[in-house]
């Protein structure tokens, strides 16, 4: 069937608009890359757009030598790896009983979990609890309160529920107990869901900011997000001062270092992005199954 003139106009506008929208996502990234790879003079003069001017890796050198970015990177990795492991174990162990229809109290516990999605104690009571438990300044204050995301819990529970009963019954006939059922039957059958949830948790821990800001006071324990954010903030205070006294501009290379700091956060994300895109899209679909 041939397109009418109106249809052709529609498609042209549609493609054009989507192209422009994609550029709004691409250009800021190219801009940051360019800033991080340009020399300080070009950066300050504002000439850098989406291609580096006066190529220089000085910003990165300064970033790695003069800031705590490497230890912070290590902290971020530690927080992410251990946190995701704790969260996955806790989520699996909680989701499995909730998926069994003979689990006594299943409805009550499900409601109790769902209620916490709608109502919570909030920042101060959580902080006071962490203080009481003496977890301030330890990463346990990041891992334990975030151990189970109720949303992820419900997704996994639904996934377990939807595994065909015939498989379970066959295993049951062979005298399979609950632990073996979970470890040998359910988990191998839910690998895609498990991969998705692990990534959900990992991205959450990698990007965690507010909890680190609240619970961690010792600067050497900061993760990347908090460290880079503080760098950005300090620099903008610095540049505000410079704005008042334009003579000092030549001294400051802050914008380039800031951009380099942002790049250190962006690059790991780009590396795992193909994986993320594949599983997160699936995850959204999993979540849309009404539990």
């Amino acid at each position: 069937m041939k397109d009418t003139f109106g249809d052709k106009v529609f498609y042209a506008c549609n493609y054009g608009l989507l192209f422009l929208l994609s550029l709004t996502c691409l250009f800021p990234l190219l801009h940051i890359v360019s800033l991080s790879l340009s020399d300080s003079h070009s950066v300050m003069s504002g000439f850098v757009t989406i291609w580096p001017q006066g190529w220089s890796i000085e910003s990165y050198r300064q970033l790695f030598v003069n800031t705590r970015i490497l230890p912070a990177f290590g902290n971020s990795v530690l927080i992410t790896v251990v946190g995701s492991a704790i969260s996955m174990i806790a989520t699996i162990l909680t989701a499995y009983p909730l998926s069994r229809n003979y689990f006594i109290g299943r409805r009550f516990f499900t409601l109790a979990a769902v209620f916490t999605m709608m109502f919570s104690g909030g920042m101060i009571p959580h902080y006071l609890l962490m203080k009481q438990l003496d977890l301030i300044n330890t990463y346990w204050s990041l891992w334990l309160p975030a151990a189970i995301s109720v949303y992820n819990l419900l997704v996994l529970r639904t996934f377990f529920v939807n595994i065909p009963e015939e498989i379970e019954e066959a295993a049951r006939m062979d005298g399979c107990g609950e632990w073996r059922m979970l470890l040998r039957i359910m988990l191998p059958l839910s690998l895609p869901a498990l991969a998705t949830l692990t990534l959900f948790y990992a991205v959450g821990y990698w990007n965690s900011f507010m909890s680190v800001l609240i619970y961690i006071n010792e600067t050497y324990k900061f993760n990347l997000t908090v460290l880079v954010q503080q760098m950005i903030r300090k620099q903008s205070v610095l540049t505000e001062m410079v704005y008042a006294q334009p003579d000092d501009v030549a001294e400051i290379t802050g914008e380039g270092i800031k951009a380099a700091g942002i790049m250190v956060m962006i690059i790991p994300m780009l590396i795992v992005y193909p994986l993320l895109q594949r599983y997160f899209v699936k995850g959204v679909m999993l979540g849309s199954v009404k539990g």
């Binding site: 174990i89 806790a90 162990l93 909680t94 009983p97 979990a113 916490t116 151990a147 189970i148």
Partner: peptide, 9 residues
């Protein structure tokens, strides 16, 4: 299995 979940909640 559910014990950690109860403690967490």
């Amino acid at each position: 299995m559910f014990l950690p979940g109860i403690v967490f909640l």
